[in-house]
Design a protein around this nucleic acid. Structure first.
Lengths: 204, 204, 204, 204
DNA sequence: ACATACGGGACAGCCCGTTACT
DNA sequence: AGTAACGGGCTGTCCCGTATGT
């Protein structure tokens, strides 16, 4: 029975898997090396994909950047930031928890590579309007979630004396800046310091 | 034949002028396009210098980056941030003034290109240790200046109830993050919002 | 064989239609952009066909080129050139008519893209022997038809004092060169000029 | 004191020579393979030049094409066509001589690669307006020279009964077409045939 | 018959740094 | 001091052909 058509030599079509591998690799490399310093070839090689496969899924580097932003960074922010804060008993507790967990992760990693959103935001904002808008949308969603949470907390007396919009902006910018500082100093402590000072005036 | 520079006999060699022009151009381009996206050739062309002239003053791109950081960005931070704050009647007034002036400058420019220090910090921190240290030093100086000013203010009763180190960190990170946000949204308003919330916490 | 196409049951497969569309598109693109500058993907996209469909009908680009030559360009030459001349009252009238009609077509089109046969002939002759032979065959048929027409005309006294082979060659080459010139200058007038001079010495 | 700086290892600057080698190689390859089918790398390799040197002299492929047209093809047409005809005793003798010499050259070469001007004209006319104009200018100069020669000959009674402009156009187009035909058939004879018929019409 | 996925390999353009030269 | 030439090497993009899937 010569039915076997050389098993093992056959190519397996797995478009979703390949796309996922490319995106994961790209997200990783964009963060650790930066966008401009990451070659398409590097992504392909690291993901175990050929140039042709790469081009099939992401014809241009920009399309890859957009996909990374929308399919990796945006969900990442939601998971790491928004969900925990929204589910926390109060903004204070949520913020404290998020800062703490991120600090712990960085400490464990032994290397501070910065916030993925932050990194791409700075590098790509002025390069392409479409990308800028995609990144801007994430910040907007972040802001909206925080404002709502703060307003809810205030209505329930868990927080007083703050303008929700202003407080949300400070939380986002302080976090963003803290990640920058931690990256520059290769030291996660600014995150703690920042968190402490942020929460100091947010007692109910 | 005296080699003296006669009036009317134009001196062609002007090493200082050339170096200055290169640095100015590089600082400008690094900010508006990013470091990796700026070619040495672009800097040379924009500065009206040939490749050889570039190489004479800055043999490598890294040497140019370091010079921009130390001779343009560091003084820039001192002038724009440290001096005004240190000379102000109080931290609050100093911070308020700096945020306001930067917001005004961005509004007038009609385009938000972000904080030069921030931009290079994010892009170059992981690329080269030497550069990272140079940038880190600027943040450290910034921090030191703020801490001292805050401590002085507190000793004179102009501010109470803050840990100087923590407050300094929050100010720096919030500013840094606000510049990022403003760049991403191409809108200087986050700077105002951030400033307002920051100052609200610093009422004596 | 009830392979009949039932009303309402749309047949999706239309191999002939697809093949025709591909050939038409390819002929069009080969002429306007050149063979090497036309990507298979462009043809597929323009024809509304996927890469797989292309490969089914034309496994290689060369096979597509051969099909375009044999199934589009050869019939085109016959229709536009040979038939009218052969049916004309005399070579002179035939040639005059063909030149005139082509000039009119170019004028109406507002853009001179050259003679399809000419274009492919120049680009592909040295690239592939098989293709060269296919193109050469068209020129041979063209020549044969003209020679016969001229001989017939002469035997009937409609033309005197010409060597049929030599005159046929001049007509073909002059037309070919005129189309080249018209394309280069983006001006159909050389065709008129050429026709006039050609006919000037062909009085009976 | 080892003053010797390894003689023989030193690079020699010869910009003109390098440029000349590149242009010669490019002209050769453009003709034998076509423009689109010739890679910049091929030219560099064949000319013994590195990519960097290539880019220094010809930053883009288009710039190389323009240089080939203006510095190789145009002088070539002048030398091979215009000068001999203008210096000949009459147009007839000039044309006869040029056709004969080109036919001989092709016969000796054993391979018909076509007329360089013709080849590039067809391939590049629709691709870039600037290139089209450069090629068009060569045809125009060709035309002007022939018209003047014909007019002079007629005023001296060496030729009668021709409109100079029309005859010039026929000569150019017939030659151009003859070269195409010779290339397609890989046979120089059409050039003779064409020449004979052309001269037959120019008997005084 | 048709469609999607994929392989491997170019191609044009560019970039950073060095070396010869004035 | 300053200019122009030059050396390798890399990047994003794309292309042709084939294999897999329906």
């Amino acid at each position: 029975m010569s039915e076997q058509i050389q098993p093992g030599r056959r190519r397996k079509n797995d478009p979703d898997g390949m796309r996922r591998r490319i995106l994961d690799t790209a997200a990783e490399l964009f963060q650790s090396r930066g966008y401009a310093s990451t070659a398409m070839h590097d992504v392909a090689h690291e993901a175990g994909v050929t140039g042709g496969g790469m081009h099939h899924h992401f014809p241009t580097k920009k399309s890859l950047a957009l996909a990374v932003i929308n399919e990796r960074i945006r969900p990442g922010v939601t998971e790491t930031w928004l969900a925990p804060v929204l589910e926390a008993a109060s903004v204070q507790e949520g913020v404290a928890q998020v800062f703490r967990e991120i600090r712990d992760a960085l400490t464990k990693a032994g290397r501070v590579r910065g916030c993925p959103l932050n990194n791409l935001a700075l590098e790509l904002s002025l390069m392409d309007p479409e990308i800028r808008v995609a990144i801007s949308a994430i910040f907007a969603a972040w802001n909206t979630a925080l404002v709502e949470k703060i307003a809810t907390d205030q209505s329930k007396g868990r927080l007083t004396g703050h303008d929700p919009q202003r407080l949300a902006t400070l939380i986002i910018t302080a976090y963003s800046g803290a990640m920058t500082l931690a990256k520059v100093q290769q030291d996660p402590r600014p995150i703690d310091t920042c968190s402490a000072e942020l929460l100091a005036r947010m007692e109910p």
